[in-house]
Design a protein around this nucleic acid. Structure first.
Lengths: 334, 334
DNA sequence: ATGAAAGCGCTAACAT
DNA sequence: ATGTTAGCGCTTTCAT
């Protein structure tokens, strides 16, 4: 393999264009004041030489790298990769590059990720924490940080109307004639989970019976308390705190010989990609991920530029009817 | 929001520890030679002060940022996000951070991505090009680059045994009793596609009839030539160049009233995540993505360190039998 | 074993 | 309008 050519510096450009370093800098950055002829001449020489600016060097001077970090808990979950895609796009349009890290649901990786990013001098971090817990307290004081979904005191967070979303899911089930509805939440110490569950439970209780209310990790693999609740057969419909959990519920129900949606209706939350391609296309509650990602990046830019923070915008949720829910059947004539 | 605290520099550490800047640097980096007492004293002071090294500044001096870039064509495809996850993990373990970009199948975004990354001074780039075409010729001369899957002359590429994979798929179908097999390739100007298709076609022709051989973009949406071929009903089984295409074939077949696998068997390629959760769990050809990602990062490190390149390792493919293939049915007694 | 100082590529304040 | 220059935080050569 041939050696890489030596990189052209601004000094090289200045020399080749026969101007001062400052003028070269002005031309490249569109700052200072320069005659039109000189400016375009410098730009042309830079182009010819194949000059590329050295952003590390600029960062040393200005303290701004033009890079941001994105820290999410699980790249295995399409919900997060979709989010990542949206954040990357929004950042790109704002002229930023993004360091992406998957913390693999590990708090120590979360800490490590923040340290690395701060060492690299990112201008800000978009963070989807594992839990509603600031595992990186010291770091979040060092760098502008904006959360998505989770709630941590002192940190701005971009959120959707989770309570209304839960309500929507419950109302959908109730409208379908279900009266015994079970709930499988994600971890309840996470506010966004608690809110959607509370919203659903209130609606369920107002119109029928809450068959059960259990919790599960963010995973398709169901814990014993959950499988027990489902297999008891007290519910004709289930609301899950997350699409991933909903998929787990469907899989488990099918393993029990239950047909979805004929024997059991299931509603998820989040509208993760591929949920509609699943063995049973998932009925779910959507939120505007693209908009939320955009807002997260915008909010971060505001903080970076020390402009006034936004005013707790809350994004609307909506129900997406697909194949995993159906009208409750008549009581069996046993 | 409170202002960010001023960042502690190495100079601050040196002053606080009452040593020279050089000693502080030696201590932090474990370079130079320092008395044990002095070294640990400096380290302790740095820790107490909450010192974090400024990698931009280091990069200006050393020319190495400790960051690499990852450029992939489509973050909407779980295959690529899985790959990204593996690359990110391998990079993290090697002490690198990674700038991720989704080029959204656009050559201009591909070019833009490379420019941005070079401006940021990445030490190397792992690149999954859109096509077997070097859209960034000038850039790949500036920065060590390693490809995955695609073939571009002059660039090292990490690949699997695609030909054997295609053969495996065909043999599976033949073993199931299928004799009229159709093929839906991805774009044929991509070598890795051509190889898997050629592998499959050779096996098919040796044992039966190639019902048709058409191409489609990397998408679930099928083009007219493809839908026409499928709806003609000449094949009892289809090999698709990619899982995404396979899923599109299944969807289209079902829309035609065909049952998969009863009326039509379908094999994909790539073993993308969620393929097994699809309405019909996808039979497919797998390749060891984690290992390939690791090798890509290793190969990149070798190039960065100017060590000898590796010797064209080729990764093995294997067949994963799932629900989208079944034994060919007896000829209808019409 | 430790320190002084040069210099990486760049920006911006300050001349002219 | 253009140039001179200090200095960002760091590494590293060269003295001591």
């Amino acid at each position: 393999m041939d050696d890489l050519p030596k990189r052209i510096t601004l000094k090289d450009v200045a020399r080749a264009a026969d101007v001062s370093l400052a003028s070269a800098s002005y031309a490249i950055n569109g700052t200072g004041s320069l005659g039109e002829a000189v400016r375009s001449h410098i730009l042309r020489t830079a182009e010819n030489l194949g000059y590329r600016r050295n952003l590390s060097a600029r960062a040393v001077r200005t303290g701004k790298t033009g890079a941001i970090g994105l820290v999410v808990p699980d790249f295995t979950n399409p919900f997060f990769t979709h989010l990542a895609q949206s954040v990357m796009r929004a950042a790109r349009l704002a002229g930023y590059c993004v360091f992406v890290t998957d913390t693999e649901e590990s708090e120590s990786l979360e800490r490590e990720a923040f340290k690395r990013m701060i060492d690299r001098g990112v201008d800000g971090i978009v963070w989807f924490p594992i839990r509603d817990v600031n595992t990186v307290e010291a770091q979040t004081r060092m760098v502008p940080t904006v959360l998505i979904d989770r709630s941590i005191s002192g940190l701005e967070s971009i959120q959707a109307d989770y309570a209304r979303g839960g309500e929507l899911a419950a109302e959908h089930l109730i409208g379908l004639g279900h009266s015994r509805i079970g709930v499988v939440a994600g971890p309840r110490d996470i506010l966004s989970q608690k809110q959607r569950i509370d919203g659903a439970v209130a609606a369920i209780k107002a119109a029928g019976t809450l068959a059960f209310s259990v919790s599960n990790a963010f995973s398709m693999d169901l814990e014993p308390s959950v499988t027990k609740a489902i297999s008891a057969g007290k519910a004709t419909a289930i609301f899950a705190g997350t699409d991933l959990i909903a998929l787990g519920v469907i899989r488990y129900a099918q393993s029990l010989g239950l047909r979805v949606p004929d024997d059991l209706s299931v509603v998820g939350f989040g509208d993760m990609p591929w949920g509609q391609m699943a063995s049973v296309p998932l009925t779910t509650v959507e939120m505007p991920i693209d908009d939320m990602a955009q807002e997260a990046v915008d909010a971060l830019m505001r903080r970076i530029d020390q402009r006034e923070p936004s005013h707790g915008k809350v994004f609307a949720t909506g129900l997406i009817r697909r194949g995993s829910t159906a009208a409750a059947r008549m009581v069996k004539i046993a």
